[in-house]
Amino acid sequence: MSKTFKLQVVAPDHPVLAEEPTLVELPGEVGEFGVMAGHMSLLSTLKPGTLRIIKDQQRDLYFVAGGFAEVNPASVIVLAEEYVKAGEIDVDEAKKIKKQSEEILSEKKEGADLKAALNALSRAEARLKVAEEFKSLKK
């Protein structure tokens, strides 16, 4: 059995998620990375994406909406803007947001907040990706 470490996922508006996994995979801004116990100290920004928590052959999926991860040899703290358990993702809502923001981006209307639309789009896409992976896992 490989060693476990402490993982805490905190976000405003959400209760703290505390786990003791053997491996966690994070959506780093420069690329996804995995962390196991004894990892060197690292501070990374996160982009909207999938958080995989692996313990005892079990794999939990979460959507995180960007933020930071502070990695220490014995602990990982994820400061997310938002996190949602894969099973609780509202797929229809995400699809709707995706469509809306795509429309805003393609029309390039004056006064429209393109940056906000881009953000919303990347979040919605990440959400859908997590939901999809969750579905394929369950099969």
Binding site: E29, V30, M40, L42, L43, S44, T45, F68, L79
Partner: peptide, 22 residues
């Protein structure tokens, strides 16, 4: 552990900026 041991991705300035505005 010592404070200087951190690795930063992408780099300390970007992280600091995001962190502070967050």
């Amino acid at each position: 552990y010592e404070a200087g041991d951190y690795d930063f991705e992408p780099d300390i300035e970007t992280i600091m900026e995001k962190l502070i505005s967050q």
